[in-house]
Write a protein that binds this DNA or RNA. Structure first.
Lengths: 365, 365
DNA sequence: GTTAGCACTCTAAATAAATGAGTGCTAACA
DNA sequence: TGTTAGCACTCATTTATTTAGAGTGCTAAC
């Protein structure tokens, strides 16, 4: 096993030849597992390169110069930089095929209600990966109106109930100065349903709105309010539900667990609203595999600058897209996480297909 | 300042004379502030008793024997036991009158939507006290049905929208095997509204239900499902919303911050559903001041065995009662917390009164 | 190009010593 | 009889010192 092929210098743009790559890979894998700086001797045994630690040392020295690894202090092993993680994730990762069949089992219990199910997804993921998880409910993005019902609750209040494709329901109480007559109510209902049902946000244009208001006559103010509600419902704006689980896992990683940082992170998880950004970013982004990885500074959320975030997008039927994210230390097990996430994505989408092919029994909201 | 009144031994049932009480009080106060075991010398100076540390030592020795204080180890100061806290809370506490006028200001911003407001209450409390807080939305306990609307969404699904007193809205999708005719729908709506509006859970009895089902004729199965939904809505069972804030504050108290415990606690806060128990207990309990204190083992929640929990009940109008709780270390500043909680309770109730005297503009849900 | 070997660095762990807060007890005092 | 000063003792905490070991860089030899 002597003589490396010297006829193949393999000088790539980034200055990494085959061997350096292998060594870097080994360093990263090892660091992911142990969380400790890794030294040359370890690598010497870890790889099948049959090189002495001294040689590895030389190579590592190069790698350090290239910015892929650093030493926390002189005479410690090396740890990967963000740059190394990025390279790893982009080119070197070989997804582990996880056996998460049990996930499936654990989910089945609660498939009744959407919110319960998603909460469960978050929990199952957190327990399985030992990282913190964030799941956002499918935002009914660009979706269609299915049904509107206007009802009079009492003399001064009417209730607009709006159902969009996918059975998301939204209620809106609207105050009126004087009671509306029964005919007016009836007229409104018919008017709105005939004109708006099946429409998406884009299709409801100004012309139509003016037309509607004209038709409604005196009640144009109410029509306006209702249309606002409809728009909100379709956009699904203010009720982007976010479910989290396993925030306490953060405390398991010493590099994150120190007082200030951990507190901030946990706070972010509790506040939730900041987490919506993850979803947004993830939904806008990558259309391909649906998986997106943010390493350290790349993260969309301030408090997560010391973490890595892996997100997946799932899609239930037409345009109903939600996201699943896993937040952990930079040395998270990317392969495993990506694998798990992919499985979960598929699982979720399957489950929806099956569910909607039966017949949906309960509303989710 | 010599000569204690020896003619007044003041031997109470619990074996505590005036002086012992004073000393115990001092120990507790001091421990609350510092979190460190407190020694005899400190007390000697802390109180106005003008006693030497030696005397204090003797008294403390007695107090230890009586079970009010313990030493973590020989030759450490003493710390209060749960029993001492209980005594303190029951008899020795003198509420600080807090100036929380700023709380008011901080709340005003978001008084629009109920859920936003409660979230804000939780947050403001957490920031102000440096403890973790739990706020539950007013459960519409024993409340009345205001309005029902049954609508046909499509051929196989009908939607029941139920509004209860206080404008809590609940939707329920119900599947039907075959489409219902327009008349049937109309009949159902009239039937349900005329018979059920204004009813509380107790008032809807079996007789009435059978009567309704008879009237409805063929649709009795659907009526059954609707009534179930109504019952759930009135009981407000499964959507007892719980808002938390400041879970990260837990990390600020070393006695709680150790890995396992803190993790469990934070988890409890994230899961939320366990926290409902606090609300339940608090609502059932104390009708007087509305304040209830659980110390250590007394806590209704397992994970909080090392904490103290102070709860307050607030009441918005008829029977709509929610709870506010503060969770902190056993050495939390009870006086301050109770004061703050009382203020917040009043604030909240006031705000509701003002709001409902105007006219409620938006639904909360 | 690879490797053995050595001197050097620096952390982490182990050990030892110093500190000091606090106690219990006793004997003296008022 | 209650109070107090004083002293010996305990033990957690802090600080200093040592040791061990992991890892590096460099050089010289293969």
């Amino acid at each position: 096993m002597a003589k490396q092929k010297k006829e193949n210098p393999e000088v790539r743009a980034d200055g990494l030849d085959e061997r350096k790559l292998k060594i870097l890979h080994a360093v990263i894998r090892n660091y992911l597992e142990t969380g400790e700086p890794v030294g040359s001797r370890t690598i010497s045994k870890y790889t099948d390169l049959n090189l002495s630690s001294a040689t590895i040392r030389n190579e590592m020295s190069d790698l350090e110069e290239l910015g892929y690894i650093v030493q926390p202090h002189t005479s410690a092993g090396r740890i990967p930089t963000d740059k190394a993680y990025r390279l790893y994730v982009d080119t070197m990762m070989e997804e582990k095929d996880r056996e998460i069949n049990n996930l499936k089992g654990m989910l089945v219990e609660a498939e009744e209600k959407m919110d319960m199910m998603l909460k469960n997804v978050a929990k199952v993921l957190a327990v399985n990966t030992n990282y913190a998880t964030v799941v956002t409910a499918p935002a009914i993005h660009g979706n269609k109106l299915k049904f509107i019902q206007i009802s009079r609750v009492d003399d001064s209040q009417i209730l607009a109930t709006i159902v969009v494709e996918g059975n998301m329901i939204r209620n809106n109480m609207i105050s009126v100065d004087e009671p509306l007559s029964d005919e007016t109510m009836l007229k409104l209902n018919i008017l709105l349903n005939t004109h708006l049902t099946g429409m998406s946000l884009d299709e409801i244009n100004l012309g139509m709105i003016t037309h509607l208001k004209e038709q409604a006559g005196i009640d144009s103010k109410i029509v306006g309010e209702i249309l606002d509600a409809v728009a909100q419902a379709i956009r699904g704006e203010d009720d982007l539900e976010v479910y989290t689980s396993g925030a306490n896992n953060i405390l398991k990683y010493p590099e994150l667990a120190d007082n200030q940082r951990a507190g901030d992170l946990i706070n972010t998880f509790e506040e939730k609203q900041a987490l919506a950004r993850i979803a947004a970013d993830s939904l806008d982004g990558n259309e391909g595999t649906g998986i997106q990885i943010y390493i350290g500074e790349e993260s969309p959320i301030e408090a997560m600058k010391d973490c890595s975030v892996v997100t997946a997008t799932y899609e239930l039927g037409e345009g109903m897209r939600g996201s699943i994210a896993i937040v952990g230390p930079k040395r998270m097990d990317y392969d495993k996480v990506v694998g798990t996430l992919k499985t979960m994505k598929v699982e979720l989408e399957d489950m929806y297909k099956k569910k909607s092919s039966k017949k949906s029994k309960k509303s989710d909201q």
